[in-house]
Structure formats: C-alpha cells, structure tokens
C-alpha cells in the first residue's frame, strides 16, 4: 500500500509555477503520504477537486 502511496505523486503532471512556488504545501502532503492511507486519499481529492472545477469553469 505504501508503495502505491509513493507512486501517486508521480502520476501528477509537473507544471512549475515560480512566483508562488512554495515548499510548504508539498512538504505537508509529503508528511500525509508518509503518514499512511489518508495521505493518498487527500492526494486523490486534490485532483478530483481540480477536475470538478475544470468542468465547472467550462459551463
């Protein structure tokens, strides 16, 4: 399960945003991932939210 958790971020496409680049969010998520299952769920939730907002914006 842990291996799966660590692989999840690799599925994310990397799009750098320099001006507001903040190591804080990533390190928080990293801690969640190391913490176990909940971290993976949060990761999926972030992407699900992004997907929803993408379709909402289309309307």
């Amino acid at each position: 399960m842990n291996v799966l958790m660590y692989c999840l971020p690799l599925m994310a496409t990397s799009t750098p945003c320099c001006a507001y680049l903040d190591a804080g969010s990533s390190s928080m998520l990293l801690q969640l991932l190391f913490g176990g299952v909940a971290g993976g769920l949060v990761f999926l939730k972030i992407y699900f939210r992004r997907l929803v907002s993408f379709f909402k914006a289309k309307k």
Partner: peptide
C-alpha cells in the same frame, strides 16, 4: 516533484 507541481502547491 511535488513542490514544482502547480496543483499541489496551490492546494
């Protein structure tokens, strides 16, 4: 990888 990811850093 996570810190250079837009979706993650904006979350």
């Amino acid at each position: 990888k996570l810190s250079s990811n837009k979706t993650i850093s904006e979350a």
